[in-house]
Write a protein that binds this DNA or RNA. Sequence first.
DNA 1: CGACATGTTGAACCTCATCAACCGACGTGG
DNA 2: CCACGTCGGTTGATGAGGTTCAACATGTCG
Lengths: 250, 250
Amino acid sequence: MSSPSVETVPDLGRCDHCAVRHQAVCGALSDQELSRVNQLARRRTISAGQIIMSDEDPVEFFANVVSGVIKLTKTLVDGRQQIVGLLFPPDFLGRAFSTSNPYFAEAATDVEICCFAHDGFERLLKEYPDLEHRLFEKTLNELDSAREWMVLLGRKTAEEKVASFLLLLARRAAVTGCSHASAALLPTFQLPLTRSDIADYLGLTIETVSRQITRLKTTGIIKLLDNRLFVVPDMDALAKIAGQELPPVH
Amino acid sequence: MSSPSVETVPDLGRCDHCAVRHQAVCGALSDQELSRVNQLARRRTISAGQIIMSDEDPVEFFANVVSGVIKLTKTLVDGRQQIVGLLFPPDFLGRAFSTSNPYFAEAATDVEICCFAHDGFERLLKEYPDLEHRLFEKTLNELDSAREWMVLLGRKTAEEKVASFLLLLARRAAVTGCSHASAALLPTFQLPLTRSDIADYLGLTIETVSRQITRLKTTGIIKLLDNRLFVVPDMDALAKIAGQELPPVH
DNA sequence: CGACATGTTGAACCTCATCAACCGACGTGG
DNA sequence: CCACGTCGGTTGATGAGGTTCAACATGTCG
């Protein structure tokens, strides 16, 4: 397992080549600490559609999202469903300090995660306050996002909802910097969700989502290279349609 | 200020008589630590309708809610508003680890809060991991609530929304145990919000809220002693209408 | 090739928003 | 003291935005 190395250099194992090593919660850890985490961690690959955690099960593990997208969903007794969160790399999956899961976690695309056993990880949180602090900050950001989404769900029109969602992805793509298309550096991204998932994320039906997308397409706000590959020629135009929140300055 | 006492007994000052001393984040602190917090804290009384924090201002302070109800709101440029959270005692107000406020905080009723200066409190968080941990747990609970509300906003009907809201208050009243009415111990509570606030919380209009309340009244699911005082004769019936989430057991 | 999943489009319907009138309570000033 | 305006709430009539139901297109996999 461990390569023959000078003993002062900790064995980081897979963590050493991990794509999200510094952005994930692990970023809080020193090399020494990370080598311990490494022994606790287990990579898993999950194909699209698989359920990762169920609200029927107790919390069994936590995980970092390494690649792909995970959707967190809640369901009413009659089957109505709502996506209450999307996890991208390097987000963290799992409800700390609770024995029960408050939602379903399902792979929206093929997904790679790095899992930690429940007990071991909670012990780690106790031992490394920096780790807990990092997780806390991530949680605060999630809370901010959730509340922004509440505005969308409660007050925005179908067109604004779809535009907001596309804007979210376009901005992510702009930051991540991976423009798939050669198209002169215009924000371009791959849809990670089906129409059905988008509907569940926006509190709409599939049909309405489809109609709004074709509308944005015909008005030229967006372009589709194929059914899943989007280009946004004018981010400001899209942002305008998305119905922005009150800016901080009055 | 400090009463002449044996020096081994820390001066808890107002904290000693504080109604939320043990439930609020302060519950994480020893008497020694609390006596220090006490010097940092300042009680404030705020009348209904006053703005406590604006998203236009930087984060200036944090606070414990001691009595009353605070609403957290977000607004779109054209004035559409959404309440993204309600704070009851002993909830915590303020976004830690950020220089800007993500929302408005407004007193829904007359409110008593216990304020801490921003810098002093963040220093305290660093020094007392237990305090930060407690705040973390509160944040996790807020996130759970926010996500539950997303299901309501995205997927529930007007009737279910109103019923869910009343159920929320009725359950709170049942726990807090303060039944205002002599009515044979039926869950009874005072509405802390105007119809307009309720509408902003549920993503509806005032008119729809009003109509749904009268509907629940005429079907006997709820009774009104006056415009603000509600009685729930049958919690299960109300819960049924509220459209429960999928129970943990399949 | 047929079966199935994903997505699009059309037509009818319905829930909820909108606009408007009205009510009672309250406070204020002439 | 009463007229007046305001505020919170209720009720009615109307219509638009989105859902529902249904048909069809497209792509994929055995």
